[in-house]
Simulated scan of single mutants.
Amino acid sequence: MFAASALIAVIVFAIVSLVLPFRFKTLTSKWIEQARSALLSRCQYAVFCSGEGKAGERLVKLRTWGITAFALLVIFLVSIDKPFQDHPSNASRVGFAILGAVALTAAVAFAYEMGRAFLPWVHGAGLLSRFGFRALWVLQPGQPSAALRDGLAARVRGSSRVLILDVTGQDLIGKGAGPSGGMLYDTLTSMTSVPVNLLLLQPESYSPDPEQRRATVFQSVLAEMDITPQNFMRRIRATLDAVQTLNESRPEDARIDVRFYSEKPSFRSIVFDESVLVAPWVPRESTFPTPFLEVAQSAADPTLYSAFRFHFARLWVASAPKQEVAAKSHGFKSVVVRRAPAAVAE
């Protein structure tokens, strides 16, 4: 009877682990998705950076690990016949006992942490994908990673038009070709059939800064970037020269069209047909790593994609053409100001 029970258990295990996934893949996939939906149906929030502020908890875990490892070592030593006898083999036995205690305790701790983190990870990943949050890319200062360049190239290839919102365009296009050049330059060089709309901050913008008293947007931006108007315009001109070079090999209907907006920059974005990459604007360009959050155009629930695309469209309609800005930018009258933000009325 016991042999029959053991045989039945093995057969059931083989059916669940081998027959169902390979022979009935459609049915198995349906069951998996139903189980996943049931698991995520009550998930209303996802916690990130949960390890912050838990130094005390980590210390307790380390102490527990140490006590457990020592207890296992004592058990292993007891099982060894006269472990401290003056014999060559005893040294190796004690050494193996120590390694075994450490390895076994580490394996148990790893399994515990994995099991404890699995459900929150599933909840977080499911909630992000549900609202279109697809990935987080990091632009390292100096040289973008090959994975980021390849990801951008794939998204440009799948788009009918690319919309770029930036401040000077230096990191994306103005640095030119090569691994340490503009993040999009090589991609736009090879993909000449995709039209591009590029929005940059207008030099000598006289729009008032909503956060500063008696300062324009351009003056505040210069202060935050800690550069002169001439240096700012050099970056703009480098981007415009790079755009001109790229346009020489592009057909008329796929040109890179450049315009200038006058609002204070708050973020940078690259809008594709299927997703948008959004990053905070870092005033000290090319100095700090920049995170690009990718948001999909479509998902199970509404996403932020339409909001970023609408923001670009609004700025584009109100923007100034490149020729008009170039005509006004021969002289510079801006003074870099450093004023405290205006007090907010309570």
Score class of each variant (00 low, 15 high):
4 A>Y: 13
8 I>D: 12
20 L>N: 08
31 W>E: 03
38 A>I: 01
39 L>V: 03
40 L>V: 08
40 L>I: 07
44 Q>I: 02
46 A>T: 01
59 L>F: 09
60 V>Y: 08
65 W>Y: 06
65 W>H: 09
68 T>G: 10
68 T>L: 13
70 F>N: 10
72 L>V: 11
80 I>R: 01
90 N>K: 13
92 S>C: 00
93 R>G: 11
97 A>E: 06
99 L>Y: 11
108 V>H: 00
108 V>M: 12
108 V>N: 03
113 E>P: 03
114 M>K: 14
117 A>S: 14
119 L>P: 04
127 L>F: 06
127 L>G: 08
127 L>E: 03
134 R>D: 15
134 R>E: 15
135 A>K: 14
136 L>D: 04
137 W>S: 13
138 V>S: 02
138 V>A: 00
151 G>V: 07
152 L>C: 09
163 L>S: 05
164 I>Y: 01
169 G>H: 03
169 G>D: 02
174 G>W: 05
176 G>W: 05
178 G>Y: 06
185 Y>T: 10
194 V>Q: 10
204 E>T: 08
206 Y>G: 09
210 P>F: 01
221 V>G: 02
230 Q>H: 13
234 R>A: 11
262 S>F: 02
263 E>A: 15
264 K>C: 07
268 R>P: 00
280 P>A: 05
286 S>C: 07
293 L>A: 09
294 E>R: 08
296 A>S: 12
297 Q>R: 14
297 Q>W: 01
303 T>A: 04
307 A>K: 00
309 R>L: 03
309 R>P: 00
312 F>Q: 02
312 F>M: 07
313 A>T: 00
327 A>Q: 10
329 S>N: 15
335 V>R: 10
337 V>Y: 00
338 R>I: 07
